[in-house]
Write a protein that binds this DNA or RNA. Structure first.
Lengths: 208, 208
DNA sequence: CGCAAACATGAATACTGATTCATGTTTCAT
DNA sequence: ATGAAACATGAATCAGTATTCATGTTTGCG
């Protein structure tokens, strides 16, 4: 058995080859899409490589041409989710100068994304157990953006003063809870109503 | 206060014998405590029965005297977490008539509980993947209590009017996010500060 | 073309870990 | 004190499955 020195000093990721042809590209995409469906539906542990590859229509060995391990494909899905949802929100808030209005539009975009990609939502949640680093990276990226936005908005007088860290975490917690209502608890409350109620709370609080 | 008439049914579980002697009782408790530590630390899938029983100081077979399956012990832990945290909150809010003050005290109690029982916190989160029914039961019980409390408080004029379902979910989302800050992201922000910032937001919102 | 690299196959390997069971020990009501 | 029920043991079973590999097929460039 080959025992190459295993260390943490590998700068790049040459462990598996990136696809060099259109065919390889398509196959890798098919595996990723299948993994999203299968892992989203059955969970990480009950989703076997066999399930994923048969869903993708390729042989089991093909999986290891593009991914080093089962955890690897999972990590890529978490990263993909981060990219996609950030892109969705950025697009939805494009050109909105008022922070409150932007946050509202961002929440709406987030909930619509989650409803459209319930599998990705579950995968991010499961990352806390399968790939904690990816999980923390995902939420830290969001939290940093939120916090900076809140800090700027406070300076511009668009919102009241208050600890931006805690606020960022609280607002993310609200978004996540509402997303979970849609995906996990299968609430049929329309997204615009959820957003309106939540933003009334966020803007005005619940004091009489 | 939490009204608990909802689950008046005690589902019998004749699948395995309940302990009949003090000795059996102690052994079962030891296994449960070991399972909490091991599953909380390693996660459901990496926590083997062998790990749990050796941590408990009993033989592997002993596990199956008290639990039908590995999932079984996990479910009991989720139920235990629900009981304990509800008890903590009920105790902390005992005799507080003002809803806002009660919610604030409840949030503080929740965060203190979570900090004291990080393993149980992770177990409840993982229940979404290991035992979805237990997960939904856990959060539904909380949401129901929250919603009823908010509805009463609105009628009493203690808080403004607003959709109590969405508010309940949002408030739970905030509590959960702050708990995660403590346990997962290891924030060292003192709990009273977290609670103060969060309740300023909840009471007054962020409008200037 | 023609051929090297890229891609694909699926059976074989190697190992883990949940659950069972035959056997032994302790408890406690009588 | 005693025997039946309760409790405890841990080696054996048994199924699943991540990963490898030797072998074939396809692609695209010169």
């Amino acid at each position: 058995m080959i025992r190459a020195a295993r260390n943490a000093e590998m700068p790049q990721r040459p462990s598996v080859s990136q696809p060099k042809t259109a065919r390889g590209e398509a196959t890798k995409k098919a595996i990723l899409a299948a993994a999203e469906r299968v892992i989203g539906a059955k969970g990480y542990n009950d989703a076997s490589i066999g399930h994923i590859t048969s869903e993708a229509g390729v042989a089991q060995g093909t999986f290891y041409i593009y991914f080093k391990t089962k955890e690897d494909v999972f990590s890529e899905l978490v990263l993909e989710m981060g990219r996609l949802v950030r892109h969705s929100i950025a697009e939805a808030t494009q050109g909105i100068d008022d922070r409150l209005a932007a946050e509202k539009a961002g929440l709406q975009a987030f909930l619509e994304f989650v409803q459209a990609h319930p599998d990705l939502y579950r995968i991010v949640q499961e990352a806390l157990f399968v790939d904690p680093e990816a999980y923390q990276a995902y939420y830290s990226a969001f939290a940093d953006g939120y916090r900076d936005g809140l800090t700027e908005a406070a300076l511009a007088g668009q919102i009241s003063a208050g600890d931006p860290d805690t606020r960022a975490w609280a607002l993310m917690g609200i978004a996540r809870a509402l997303g979970e209502q849609l995906v996990v608890f299968k609430s049929d409350k329309p997204i615009p109503e959820l957003v309106a109620s939540a933003y009334d709370l966020i803007e005005n609080g619940i004091k009489p």
